[in-house]
């Protein structure tokens, strides 16, 4: 059976004066949540803007909900909800004004759902935008996007700057929208906890390239930290999947990806004792991945 794709990017390239996206391949199955992780300036927002048709790639092909972008973006955008921090609302108008405004444009607007969301988010229709706190503003824009019942929700940094209670409200409502299994979510975040909690798939971006893109369970499972004791000061085996080595006297912690049982055997064969094999949190993987990618980039520049 062919699973319908919410997003299909193939070999997307985009050059800016100080930054470029290189050969970005990204696929999102319908009904799933994709989290984009990467440090500031890695290209997360650029990818989201290209997917939204707000920027045209220099090369590559892109389909969103079956529509070619940016050519067919009008049809696609009827079914996409986009929430980003720089989203402009009319400051001197009320939340209710924006609800009526969006209702007049999109025929999929669900008034009952909008009312439910207002209540759950503790928002008041007659509130003016300029009086809203940051958290209320994020909740208002999310409500405006979700009440259209979009097939794809694209959310740039949903939880940045939110207090833990509002952050939970936002994530909860994102998850609630997935009760309908044809809906998909693509979001970027540098809050690794959010990504770890709600994404089905994780794409790691660094310096305009995709470093890894996998389902979350395999992603988290493939990274391990091995705690080793190196009594005889033997050289470590030269494995391609070693991402980080931290040595302190006879103790050594080695972080690897693409882990399987043979990895540990290699260290035993080299004369080291494997004391413990640990899982990593997404945050630890994030930091390790960034450091490794940085070293790789610097060694490329220096050679």
């Amino acid at each position: 059976m062919n699973i319908p794709m919410a997003v299909e990017c193939k070999a997307i390239n985009k050059r800016h004066s100080h930054f470029q996206l290189q050969d970005v391949d990204l696929s999102i199955e319908q009904g799933t949540v994709m989290g984009l992780v990467g440090p500031n300036g890695a290209g997360k927002s650029t990818i989201l803007r290209i997917i939204m048709g707000l920027q045209k790639p220099d090369s590559g092909s892109l389909k969103v909900l079956g529509h070619s972008m940016p050519d067919d973006q009008i049809a696609a955008k009827r079914r996409i909800g986009f929430v980003a921090e720089d989203m402009r609302l009319y400051e001197s108008e009320t939340i209710g004004f924006h609800m009526d405004f969006i209702k007049s444009i999109f025929d999929t607007w669900d008034q009952d759902y909008a009312a439910t969301l207002l209540r759950r988010f503790d928002l008041i229709k007659d509130q003016k935008i300029k009086g809203l706190s940051h958290g209320q503003r994020v909740k208002a824009t999310l409500m405006l996007a979700l009440a259209r019942r979009p097939q794809l929700l694209v959310f740039d940094e949903p939880t940045t700057g939110l207090d833990p209670a509002v952050r939970k409200e936002v994530l909860d409502e994102m998850m609630n929208s997935l009760q309908d299994e044809t809906r998909s979510i693509l979001f970027s975040s540098h809050n690794t906890l959010d990504i770890e909690q709600i994404s089905d798939y994780i794409t790691f971006i660094y310096d305009g390239r995709i470093i890894e893109s996998k389902d979350k369970e395999s992603f988290l499972d493939s990274w391990r930290r091995l705690r080793l004791v190196n009594i005889d000061n033997k050289p470590l085996p030269d494995l391609p999947n070693i991402k980080q080595i931290q040595q302190s006297g006879r103790l050594c912690a080695v972080t690897v990806n693409d882990y399987d049982d043979s990895t540990a055997d290699q260290f035993t064969k080299a004369g080291l004792t494997v004391e413990n094999i640990e899982h990593l949190t997404l945050e630890e993987i994030f930091i390790c991945n960034v450091q490794y990618a940085k070293e790789l980039k610097n060694s490329r520049i220096n050679s």
Partner: peptide
Amino acid sequence: IRQLATEIKVSVITVKR
């Protein structure tokens, strides 16, 4: 799986596992 995932706000793939 989807029902439990959306109820406890954990990704579908994790509940599936």
